[in-house]
């Protein structure tokens, strides 16, 4: 029905207008998140400074891993996290019903009527750190490898958005699902270190059921030419394909949840 190239800008425009009444709070939010991530990365760099390397990765390589992790996360999460964390609330208050009677894809409406511009601080920090680390690591860039790197990034962001969507969709059936985000952020925390420092069962888990290894470690290791456990030469292809694959699963799950939506329960 609705033409997406008109509706999406209209939704984003309306949402931003509704938020910019409090610009001070927004800027403080950016700064405070920038500070928190900066502080965490400083802590990690202190360990690297004392010990030289972590799992065979030196500081510039770890910095690339951290910045890729943060960039993929903020790109994916700006499309999903806050919107789907509010899903519980939307279901409980019945606002979800009002969204379901609009002649537009529900996912599109939820995502773009809440497109989060609060990740600006993350993105600035991630781009800065990535820019620096790319000049320090030993990679010869070609147009092909540059495009591949962008493809990894898109795929990684897709994993984030798809996983968040799945968790939010679960609220349609269970009413409560926000505790699952805590589990997501558990794996998210693991995903910013080299996978090879973890025990084998955890490595398998992070490459299969909780595929956040593809969010940063696998693509960055493939870029740096480092050996990837279990995947070996398949790392590059897997990094590219994992995002679309998780997205397909998320779409099926989303549909299933919409079909089994209960409202607030009668």
């Amino acid at each position: 029905m609705a033409r997406l190239h008109v509706v999406i800008p209209a939704l984003v425009h309306t949402f931003i207008r509704s938020k910019t009444e409090y610009p001070g709070a927004m800027v403080l939010g950016w700064l405070s998140q920038f500070a928190a991530y900066g502080s965490m990365y400083t802590a990690i760099s202190l360990i690297l400074a004392r010990f030289g390397s972590l799992g065979g990765w030196v500081w510039p390589e770890i910095a690339l891993l951290l910045s890729f992790h943060l960039l993929a996360y903020s790109l994916g999460a700006s499309l999903s996290f806050v919107q789907f964390r509010e899903m519980e609330e939307k279901v409980r208050m019945g606002t979800m019903d009002a969204i379901l009677v609009k002649p537009i894809s529900t996912w599109t409406y939820v995502v773009f009527s809440g497109l989060n511009i609060g990740y600006a601080g993350h993105i600035v920090l991630a781009l800065g750190l990535m820019g620096w680390s790319l000049t320090q690591v030993d990679v010869t860039w070609t147009i092909q490898s540059g495009l591949l790197f962008l493809g990894y990034l898109v795929s990684a962001a897709m994993i984030v958005a798809a996983t968040m969507t799945m968790i939010g969709a679960t609220a349609l059936v269970w009413v409560k699902s926000n505790h699952l985000y805590q589990i997501f952020f558990g794996f998210w925390e693991l995903a910013r270190y080299p996978l090879n420092i973890f025990p084998l069962p955890l490595q398998i888990l992070m490459l299969t059921f909780a595929p956040l290894a593809f969010m940063a470690y696998v693509p960055v290791a493939a870029t740096l030419g480092k050996p990837v456990p279990l995947l070996g030469d398949w790392a590059s292809a897997a990094a590219l394909l994992s995002g679309p694959l998780v997205t397909l699963i998320a779409m099926a799950h989303w549909r299933w949840c919409l079909r089994n939506y209960q409202g607030a329960g009668g």
Binding site: I47, S53, L54, H179, Q182, G186, L190, Y193, I197, F198
Partner: peptide
């Protein structure tokens, strides 16, 4: 919240343990 709290702290701890084990081995 209890279950996910236990899970969250366990994951946090396993990350720490993995990091310290890795760097101590060097």
């Amino acid at each position: 919240q209890v279950w996910s709290g236990v899970f969250g702290e366990l994951v946090f701890m396993f990350a720490r343990i993995a990091i310290w084990t890795s760097v101590f081995s060097t």
